[in-house]
Amino acid sequence: MAEKKRAMFRVVIDGSQEAIFRELTRTDGLLPAIFNSRMHTTGLKPGGRMQMRTPSGDHVIVDGDVLEYDFPRRFAHTHRFTTLDDPVCKVTYELKPVAGGIEVTLTVDDMPAGTKTEKEMTKGGDFILANLKAIVEKGRPPLGARVMYAMFGALEFMLPGRTKAAHWPLEKTKETA
């Protein structure tokens, strides 16, 4: 069995806890903090299904189940990249007021060591929190992220066929390996 790892990321953001939580969980618009994805869900409550899709909704990048949803404190879901066959891991966002703002901690549990999932999650964690901070404090993500999102939009047709939404029904409960 592959060794399972944890990674943690933390940032303090000067903003309202509710606004920050919404930047991570909104379902009525894009999530510029999280790779400009659009969250599709059967309901943000334990047992609900959730997916991070491309802005068009045509491709699924991440598929998961909601584990915890406690507005505006905690949100946890299982996380599986649709492009990879790695075991699922768990993502938890925790928000807490501290001196100077809201402390946001992103924890990734059960990362299968040595896999591409581990690599992507380790890179993705600080990207998400740095973006989140810029969005809340300055009103938009940093230039690098904006350039990246423009490229994503232009290159959506290049995503592998297995990411097509038809292959990843939202309603169906997938057994998790």
Binding site: A7, A130, A134
Partner: peptide, 13 residues
């Protein structure tokens, strides 16, 4: 103990 890369990422940004 865990390493938190976010501050270094922000310096990079």
């Amino acid at each position: 103990l865990y390493f938190n890369p976010v501050p270094i990422h922000m310096i990079y940004d």
